[in-house]
Design a protein around this nucleic acid. Structure first.
Length: 170
DNA sequence: GCCAACGTTGGC
DNA sequence: GCCAACGTTGGC
């Protein structure tokens, strides 16, 4: 078979991600308290973040849970993708703040995955510590002006971050 | 509260 | 297709 006609295989193995949430709105504790420690990651209205969820996130992938717009901004714990992408129902609801009339049930614009809490870091890993940790220089989170609320993390970055703290299963 | 950086919108 | 205006994000 000609190589150029072969569908490109998705890289095998577990992938890693980081999601941001304002703890005043939805914290890691809120995720732990949710039924099954799981929630739909709804309300994402950025195309790049959507594409990661819709096209690349798979059940079992690792997720770093980041608290933004708070003091201190920090990684709170780890989670995993519990369900692959499906249409974000809040986009269809006219009364929802994330309603988007251009997303239709027969042709959804916005997608979400389900995220399940796995473990809390014994203490949060605050942003300055991440900046100071060798090997994390390339993290999207640390890039100046970075605003992506769903972003990929390399396996190497994941290993470094998760080795910074003891983890307490939830 | 400030403001830099970013994504989106809409006039042209 | 350009780009100014605008709204949002998010650290500080």
């Amino acid at each position: 078979m000609p190589a150029q006609s072969a569908p490109r295989a998705r890289p095998v193995g577990r992938r890693y991600w980081l999601v941001k949430s304002e703890p005043n709105v939805f914290s890691f504790d809120d995720l732990v308290a949710a039924p099954g420690h799981t929630t739909g990651w709804d309300g994402v209205r950025n195309y790049q973040a959507r594409n990661f969820m819709r096209d690349d996130m798979r059940p079992g992938d690792g997720v770093l849970f980041y608290h933004s717009s708070c003091e201190p901004p920090a990684l709170a714990g780890i989670a995993e993708v519990a369900r692959a992408a499906y249409p974000d129902p809040t986009a269809f609801d006219p009364r929802d703040p994330h309603h988007d009339p251009k997303s239709r049930r027969d042709e959804p614009t916005w997608y979400q995955v389900d995220v399940r809490a796995i473990a809390r870091f014994e203490t949060p890993i605050a942003l300055p510590e991440l900046r100071d940790t060798p090997g994390l220089e390339g993290m999207e989170l640390l890039r100046r002006g970075s605003r992506l609320s769903v972003q990929p993390v390399t396996r190497e970055q994941w290993e470094i971050v998760t080795s910074l703290r003891k983890q307490v299963r939830v």
